[in-house]
């Protein structure tokens, strides 16, 4: 008991125990129990079967595509998302409120709608695709198309993580740096970037994690060709179609473990940068 009270820090607001118990209960019901069900279901089958499922060539190819495309899409979202957040915070222009609201749209749109719209745009006859086709760039039904869909989904995560941090950042620091003779690049690299870096990590982690599990928008644009453009979530659906629940959950478990490790890594990085900033 004493041990337990130790991790409670003095606070003017009462209610540690109800809040803490509620957190544990809620996380168990909403997160832990469904996730453990995934693992229990997958180990209901033999290890050799599970290994056979997750090491099959088309499954490995789908992991490569899912993780690769999610990573690329996450990185693009970080760069573009930062830019959008910067514009929204630093400039006043007509229609700013409108653009600000637009950023959230990918959250609200049913992903299947997004997928169908993107596919229509990027096929060789689509509004955008028809100009890319003569250049030899094919987007729909290629891994590039998967990246496009995942970038669309990921952008708001980065913008919404970075925006409040950027808004809070003290502009006097930049002015001080400038008056001390720092170049523009130095100001960006040494003043602004350290402030927003944790937020960029958060945004990246959210966008990346979301991309890993994305199904609705991707299956329309990916083309679902085995070994080439099948994403891991599609193979989960294909397994269910064969009533292979254990196989489906095995693929899901690998996705879960991998994303958990990656998120853990991102969080650690984020903590380190924050500590680094605090000690400065």
């Amino acid at each position: 008991m004493r041990l337990l009270t130790q991790f409670r820090r003095p606070s003017v607001l009462p209610g540690f125990w109800p809040a803490f118990s509620y957190t544990v209960l809620y996380l168990s019901l909403i997160v832990l129990i469904p996730l453990s069900a995934v693992f229990l279901k997958s180990v209901s089958s033999s290890w050799t079967h599970l290994w056979k499922v997750i090491s099959a060539p088309e499954v490995v190819a789908s992991y490569r595509l899912t993780f690769g495309a999610s990573l690329v899409a996450g990185l693009i979202s970080v760069v573009v998302g930062f830019l959008v957040a910067w514009v929204l915070v630093r400039y006043r222009f007509p229609g700013r409120a409108l653009v600000d609201a637009l950023v959230d749209l990918p959250f609200a749109l049913p992903t299947a709608v997004a997928g169908i719209a993107l596919t229509s745009l990027y096929t060789e006859h689509g509004w955008v695709g028809r100009y890319l086709a003569p250049l030899g760039i094919k987007v729909a039904f290629t891994p590039l198309g998967v990246v496009v869909a995942l970038t669309f989904i990921g952008l708001p995560f980065v913008v919404r993580s970075v925006q409040p941090v950027l808004a809070d950042a003290d502009r006097e620091l930049e002015e001080a740096a400038s008056s001390l003779g720092a170049t523009r690049w130095q100001i960006f690299r040494l003043v602004i970037l350290p402030i927003v870096r944790p937020a960029l990590f958060t945004g990246f982690a959210l966008a990346f994690a979301r991309a890993l599990g994305e199904y609705g928008s991707v299956i329309f644009i990916s083309g679902n060709l085995p070994m080439k453009t099948e994403i891991a979530p599609l193979l989960i659906v294909a397994k269910l179609e064969q009533y292979d629940y254990a196989g489906a959950t095995a693929i899901a478990a690998v996705l879960l473990i991998a994303s958990f490790l990656l998120l853990l890594g991102v969080n650690a990085l984020q903590r380190r940068t924050r500590r680094f900033m605090e000690t400065e």
């Binding site: 729909a140 039904f141 299956i219 329309f220 083309g223 679902n224 060709l225 085995p226 599609l234 659906v237």
Partner: peptide
């Protein structure tokens, strides 16, 4: 060139 997931697709 493309295998949609269902007939309507």
């Amino acid at each position: 060139p493309v295998l949609d997931s269902g007939a309507r697709g």
